[in-house]
Amino acid sequence: MNITQILFWLLTVMAIGSALMVIVSKNPVYSVLFLIATFFAISGHYILLNAQFLAIVNLIVYAGAIMVLFLFVIMLMNLNTETEPQKNKWLKFAGTIAGGCLLLVLVAALRDADTRTSTALVKEGDIGLIQNLGKTLFNEYVIPFEISSVLFLSAMVGAVVLGKKE
């Protein structure tokens, strides 16, 4: 077992463990912190796959900006109490069973697929570097890039309109 596999399993355990803690912790602030840990683990996977630009963007945009926005809203609403109304125990049980069945069916369907011999390259390949991604983005994906600016503008206007006191 070389260092890459050790890192892979470490990051996998970290990602799944903190994702589980997101949905079982009672306090929403802890949920946000565990979700940040999950994003760090996923960024580690990106670095392992040599997708360095996405790893940094994932950290800056998700763990940096979006999660701070979540924390800000939670603390603004004073939700860091543990008084969240709980669902009916049977509803929780049914939700867990349904999600587990989804996982079971998907894993069972993909277990014997033709992907067993395929490997994802780790620690090599340079498509994740910002030079190649930038060239592809501005050569072939200029129109979606510009349209996403319109999307951001409309989202900003929508957030302001929704948040405004009437």
Binding site: A19, V22, T96, A98, G99, G100
Partner: peptide, 10 residues
Amino acid sequence: SIGVIGVLTR
């Protein structure tokens, strides 16, 4: 699946 379970149970 963890995300789906979270949406269904919280």
